[in-house]
């Protein structure tokens, strides 16, 4: 291990190490962040949910939006896979269907950034556990 030689060194180290702990920090305060759940059951994955999830994780980080992206089980909307649920702090969760990378991009740009709704909303018909 290299020695930490100064306070500036330490701060630099912290910056680098922080991103690896980011996921834990965020889950400390999920209510304050945009939460995205990607339905990752067999049907979802077959329709490309994995790629969408990776896109969301990477792009929201790149675009400086603090999000928690988690996978979840089948939401039951098999006709509209991949489906994702987006919850902006203080708002009701909204489910979007048929989310490919292009749609995911739109959701990030329009809904998450500006609160504008985009096509493909599915009415929520389930309850989430606390």
């Amino acid at each position: 291990m290299a020695k930490v030689k100064s306070l500036a060194d330490l701060k630099r180290m912290k910056e680098e190490l922080q991103s690896k702990m980011d996921l834990r920090e965020k889950s400390n305060d999920p209510e304050g962040l945009v939460q995205i759940k990607v339905a990752m059951a067999t049907c979802g994955i077959a329709s490309g949910a994995k790629e969408v999830m990776e896109f969301l994780i990477e792009e929201t980080a790149k675009r400086g939006i603090r999000t928690v992206v988690t996978q979840t089980g089948c939401m039951g909307y098999c006709y509209a896979e991949p489906t994702i649920e987006v919850q902006i702090p203080g708002k009701e969760p909204i489910v979007f269907g048929d989310v490919d990378i292009k749609k995911a991009d739109q959701i990030v740009e329009k809904y998450i950034k500006n609160g504008e709704l985009v096509d493909g909303i599915i009415p929520v018909n389930y309850k989430t556990l606390d």
Binding site: V4, L7, L10, K11, M13, K14, L17, Q18, K20, M21, R24, E25, N28
Partner: peptide
């Protein structure tokens, strides 16, 4: 929250920053 056997995780959470600030 952190792995106590990994100093990197402590540093990531502002570890040793207080010592640095004092010095």
């Amino acid at each position: 929250f952190i792995n106590p056997e990994n100093v990197d995780e402590y540093i990531a959470r502002d570890g040793y920053a207080a010592l640095g600030k004092c010095l």
